[in-house]
Write a protein that binds this DNA or RNA. Structure first.
Lengths: 134, 134
DNA sequence: CAGTATCCCAGATGATACTG
DNA sequence: CAGTATCATCTGGGATACTG
């Protein structure tokens, strides 16, 4: 993923032939924003604002502290989340969406919208694909 | 993908729909549309139109036929892709985006746009995060 | 061509226990 | 509280070989 050729969104076939990695301009974004657990984390931060570690841990059910930490670190490294450590007793750490992370809002909104409008279609397609058999 | 959870015996479906606290509305969509390999596949189909198995296989480098088949089946089952089998010799199978799949276009466009605008910021954030090697 | 069938391993996850 | 450390597990994916 070191390739950073600025590609014109046009003439896709030429690009793909030259560099298959660039055939899909959305993959890099997906890897960053929609990797495992990141959606619920970002959404939670986006929807409920600044939160402490435990709050996130409780809000996102079934996530272990280890994994939550991993994901949070990744998000922090990617600049989507800001971590603030308060040296108190007991310690307090707060996470919040960064400026950059906030730019994802319209994207999230559109995805939620698509889901609201089409998730049922997907369900129906699945049932049909799986056949009349129960 | 399904975060299988033994929910408390409360009304789970109502929770998910009405109470964002307990469910991330975008996760279901992400699981369907942005699971592994699906982005490049959908993008390829979206960008280059109807294609045969081999074409996809070549276009999306580093994907094995096994995995490509799996993903294609999943996409077909979810109603995002249409598979057409031509009983010829040699056999010919063509894949194309479905009507439902096409509704993802604006989403894809927005994601690509976000990437074009912000991927650099992410890179920079990473370097800065990794940088202070001390 | 368009897949299947196997074998296998790495890396992601989960469970549990332990600190500053 | 906010993690880390460790160990066991498990599934996806890769490599390879084989058909209709």
């Amino acid at each position: 993923m070191t390739t950073e050729t600025s590609r014109p969104a046009t003439d896709a076939s030429a690009d793909a032939a030259a560099d298959p990695e660039l055939a899909c301009p959305i993959s890099p974004v997906v890897d960053i924003v929609f990797s495992r657990w990141t959606s619920p984390i970002l959404w939670s931060l986006h929807a409920f604002g600044r939160q402490r570690f435990v709050e996130l841990e409780r809000r996102i059910e079934n996530i272990t502290p280890k994994v939550l930490t991993q994901r949070l670190r990744q998000l922090e490294r990617d600049g989507l989340v800001v971590r603030t450590y308060h040296p108190e007793v007991p310690p307090r750490v707060e996470y919040e969406i960064s400026e950059l992370g906030r730019t994802l809002s319209p994207l999230f909104a559109q995805i939620a919208e698509w889901g609201a409008a089409n998730l049922e279609h997907v369900e129906r397609a699945r049932r049909q694909y799986d056949g009349p058999r129960a």
